[in-house]
């Protein structure tokens, strides 16, 4: 293979962190959804994402070949070693906040996986092909909620527009090309290459939802990919990692 396995491991880790942190966030809704049907729907999405995270962590562990396991990578790394985007660690807020965050990420994940499923690295393409089917459904689900809330009552319209405006500053980072992406040129897509597709999707859905698209050139928050996180990630990890850290010998 012409790409360094340590780079591939780092890449898989970032994807793993994205999907694990968002899956963990979404699972906070379990038992608290507005209605039973949507509670289960969101929990299904959380489970899909955690399943994808496992696939990426296993891949990363194999490429690192330093004896670490998927559990070590998920449960024994501190926040500054996590390489997820800031968007996925933000608090759930209300239903509209959660669905706006989800729609931004689902659309990104959809276009990412579309490209990644053509990767010449068989591990990456296999996982991407499986995840692509799941994420196609996620993207449909979250887009429908954006339309429903935007084109719903005056109150739902106002609230979802506020959610969109508030979260917008965290969408720029999704399309940041890092040195790692460039080193893996040919194996993985450069995020900037599918930004136009993502923006187009935003325009289509926002038009149906009668929502205003924020300025794509507005100031954007960055840092997650390089381990500089919001204060929220520490709390997620503290809760998620408590058990394996307190009881390192605990078995399933």
């Amino acid at each position: 293979m012409k790409w360094a396995t340590c780079d591939l491991a780092d890449y898989a880790l970032r994807k793993a962190d994205d999907t694990l942190v968002l899956g963990q966030r979404l699972s906070e809704w379990c038992g608290h959804g507005p209605v039973l049907e949507q509670d289960i729907a969101l929990t299904n999405v959380a489970l899909d994402l955690i399943g994808q995270a496992r696939g990426y962590y296993q891949m990363a562990a194999a490429w690192r070949a330093d004896g670490s396991t998927e559990d070590d990578l998920a449960y024994r790394r501190d926040a500054h070693l996590y390489g997820n985007h800031l968007l996925v660690e933000l608090p759930n807020g209300h239903w509209g906040d959660t669905l706006a965050r989800q729609f931004f990420f689902d659309a990104y994940n959809f276009f990412l996986l579309e490209q990644l499923s053509k990767s010449p690295v068989p591990e990456l393409s296999a996982l991407a092909q499986k995840a692509y089917k799941e994420v196609s459904y996620h993207a449909q689900f979250s887009a429908e909620w954006i339309i429903r809330l935007g084109d719903g009552t005056d109150e739902s319209h106002t609230k979802i527009q506020q959610s969109v405006n508030r979260l917008w500053a965290y969408t720029g980072e999704l399309f940041e090309d890092t040195d790692l992406d460039r080193k893996l040129d040919g194996a993985v897509p450069l995020p900037s290459t599918f930004r136009a597709d993502w923006l187009q999707k935003m325009r289509e859905v926002f038009a149906l939802a009668t929502l205003e698209l924020p300025d794509p050139n507005a100031y954007m928050q960055k840092g997650g990919l390089h381990g500089r996180h919001t204060e929220h990630l520490g709390y997620i990890l503290a809760e998620m990692q408590y058990l394996p850290r307190a009881y390192p010998d605990a078995k399933w």
Binding site: L36, E37, Q38, I40, A41, N44, F141, E144
Partner: peptide, 13 residues
């Protein structure tokens, strides 16, 4: 449409 989607989520997991 929502009923169909929810049915997928609730009854075909």
């Amino acid at each position: 449409e929502t009923a169909l989607k929810s049915a997928r989520d609730v009854y075909t997991r």
